[in-house]
Design a protein around this nucleic acid. Structure first.
Length: 476
RNA sequence: GGCCCCAUCGUCUAGCGGUUAGGACAUCGGCCUCUCACGCCGGUAACGCGGGUUCGAUUCCCGCUGGGGUCGCCA
């Protein structure tokens, strides 16, 4: 049977990097094997689901380039892809299990259950309440009720996990879990099983926090007489604090990294190496990831997200032209440049300056900052740089101005040669003249090499900036 | 607390019986140098503990300890 995997988020918050990793591994597996990657929205909880979250998740996935073959806004032959639109199916199958005696109606109310929990908690402050039944089976279907699964009392439920191997759980541990809520909406375990089966999912890959659900789901597959899919659980990505990643924690939201100027592959590369490895290799292109990914190389222990390592991996992608081609870099950084108030940034000049900022910009936000003075006339003069434009610096700038004006060819090596010759002849030290010139050209105390900057600016602009600096020196 | 799972530098990890336990990030030195970077060189830094199995355990088994997950009419 053709490989079909899915990513099934609940639209109750942003897509965070942990969820993005789950989506990535599914996507990689599908792409590697020519399978189908399905996106399904698990919006059965009307209280917590929101259309904004659906939007946010779709946008984040698209930005990362994890395009889905079937799902919202794409369609497919196994829809609908929103669980809220599949209620009739769940209801029908729930009734079927009741008819077959594999499930039953229970009219114990939520309040009564809460009371039981509270009572238990009062007596056993340490332990956690576990009520496995028997629940109150109701005979009057017109009364509000849920449908519970009639869980076997003994034996155990096993499944093979592609990452963790064989996992066995005693059935005595499982409660008579709820399939259908009293409001007619299905609960996670039930809806997931029904949909995974209906959508012909062949492998369910999700976070390790779902291993406890798997036995219940396997029990459901058996009750229906369906063959369970394969399972693969991923070790958890914890926050750097060691706590579980939260959907409400905006700082780990995918869109946050986009806004901070990281590229999709920067994010994906870091995520790919979290729980998966390929020898000592750290940096991968998207194509390499698709080719090399394998469940065999997925680890089993949880890890903590590391901001520094993440930033470095992202930087590596920005730094290497083979990973981020110039044209991609220019189009990616342009919006960040524009956000600084530079209207219709000169793309050609950005491209020209690119080699000078590539190994200096750790993010597109930084890149836009480093690009600023090439694109703004006059350049912004930093407060910290202003003091370098002293009357004493004026003569040096005058001399440099002449050199630039007289230079035959306007290429870095020739400019540097002429510069060195002048220093030689005058006995002036490079250290003493470089900083004023740098401030004149860039308005900053730090910049790429002077001659490279001049070439990007062009002779005319270089002269204009030197002139302006000379005026400022005299004025101070 | 029950059940399930995990355990190599601070962090992400390589290792699949015999290695000076490797790489990357971080960190600390140094080099390069017109500034800032990049780059390069080098240092500090790990197999949780106790039993086995074996000629030999980081590696296999058991226990302990530690950590995590889960125990909802959330997903």
């Amino acid at each position: 049977m053709a490989l079909r995997v899915r990513f099934a988020p609940s639209p109750s918050g942003y897509l965070h990097i942990g969820g993005a990793r789950t989506a990535l591994f599914n996507w990689l597996w599908a792409r590697k094997n020519g399978g189908t990657f399905i996106l399904r929205v698990e919006d059965t909880d009307q209280e917590r689901s929101s259309i904004e979250s659906v939007r946010a998740i779709l946008d984040a996935l698209r930005w990362l380039g994890l395009e889905w073959d079937e799902g919202p806004e794409v369609g497919g032959g196994k829809g609908p892809y929103f669980q809220s639109e599949r209620r009739a199916l769940y209801r029908e199958l729930g009734e079927q299990l009741v008819r077959e005696g594999k499930a039953y109606r229970c009219d114990l109310t939520k309040e009564e259950l809460d009371q039981l929990r509270a009572d238990f908690k009062a007596k056993n402050p340490k332990g956690e309440f576990v009520y496995k039944g028997p629940y109150r089976e109701c005979t009057d279907p017109s009364k509000p009720h849920v449908i519970r699964f009639r869980t076997p009392r003994d034996g155990s439920t096993d499944f093979a996990d592609k990452v963790f191997g064989h996992i066995s759980t005693p059935n005595s541990e499982q409660p008579d879990f709820v399939l259908m809520r009293s409001d007619g909406f299905p609960l996670y375990n039930f809806a997931a099983v029904v949909d995974d089966h209906a959508m012909d999912i062949t492998l369910v890959a999700r976070g390790r926090d779902h291993v406890g659900n798997t036995p219940q789901q396997v029990l459901l597959y058996r009750a229906f007489g369906w063959t369970p899919p394969d399972f693969a659980h991923l070790p958890l990505m914890l926050a750097s604090s060691g706590e579980k990643l939260s959907k409400r924690n905006a700082s780990v939201a995918v869109h946050e990294y986009r806004d901070r100027g990281y590229t999709p592959m920067g994010v994906l590369n870091y995520l790919s190496r979290f729980g998966w490895s390929y020898g000592d290799q750290e940096i991968f292109s998207r194509e390499e990831l698709v080719r090399l990914f394998d469940w065999e190389r997925v680890g089993r222990s949880d890890g903590k997200f590391d901001e520094k390592k993440f930033a470095d991996v992202a930087f590596e992608h920005l730094k290497r032209p083979e990973l981020t081609p110039p044209s991609d870099y220019v189009s990616s950084v342009t919006p960040f440049v524009a956000a600084r108030g530079i209207e219709r940034p000169d793309q050609a000049r950005i491209a020209a300056a690119l080699p000078l900022i590539r190994d200096r910009a750790h993010s597109l936000v930084e890149a836009a900052d480093l690009l600023d003075f090439y694109l703004r006339e006059p350049p912004v003069l930093d407060d910290a740089a202003r003091p370098l434009l002293t009357p004493a610096a004026a003569p040096h700038l005058e001399a440099v101005r002449k050199l630039v004006a007289d230079a035959g060819s306007f290429v870095a090596s020739d400019l540097e040669a002429a510069f060195k010759a002048w220093l030689e002849a005058s006995g002036i030290k490079m250290k003493d003249v470089a900083q004023p010139v740098r401030v004149a050209l860039s308005g900053r105390k730090a910049s790429p090499g002077l001659f490279d900057v001049m070439v990007v600016l062009g002779r005319e602009t270089t002269l204009a900036r030197l002139d302006r600096a000379i005026q400022l020196c005299r004025g101070s």
